[in-house]
């Protein structure tokens, strides 16, 4: 896949590091609260002082829940033509106090176990109107 033929689903939400893909968010240095996407201020009412730092999250987590999208949703949702139902998971990232949603990259959405371990990948959700791959974070079983 050449660079010009792919675009991120949104800017600044994920990055490829030497250790693999990561989500880009923030963490409050005072209370430790994690945010994705980035937050300018700490939303924790117990926190005494906002001190937001950029933070990368991932790659491992546990699948807390899952759903399968039964019908093709309208824009701005991106999917591959012809439509095949895809799975979306709720993932508790390891050690990072962050629960995040993401599309699941699996061959058989019907047979996903809640509780299983998953890892972050950057992959195409489908094509946009100009035929470009739209890249986003996804999770796949480990």
């Amino acid at each position: 896949m050449s660079k010009s033929n792919s675009i991120p689903a949104a800017e600044g939400l994920f990055t490829e590091t030497a250790d693999g893909p990561r989500l880009v968010g923030s963490r409050c240095a005072t209370c430790g609260s994690a945010y994705f996407p980035r937050a300018q201020a700490c939303h924790n009412p117990e926190c005494e002082r906002t001190d937001m730092r950029d933070a990368n999250f991932g790659p491992r987590g546990r699948l807390a829940s899952v759903t399968i999208q039964g019908y093709p949703p309208p824009a701005p949702v991106v999917w591959s033509d012809p439509y095949t139902p895809y799975a979306v998971g709720l993932v508790d990232l390891e050690d990072e106090a962050l629960r995040v949603i993401g599309r699941l990259r699996v061959d058989d959405p019907e047979n996903i176990e809640v509780g299983g371990e998953v890892e972050l990948v950057l992959a195409s959700l489908g094509h946009d109107d100009e035929g470009r791959d739209v890249i986003s974070w996804q999770f796949q079983p480990v």
Partner: peptide, 11 residues
């Protein structure tokens, strides 16, 4: 809400 639809696809 926009990001949830665009980046994940969860109505």
């Amino acid at each position: 809400e926009y990001l949830r639809q665009r980046c994940v696809g969860l109505p």
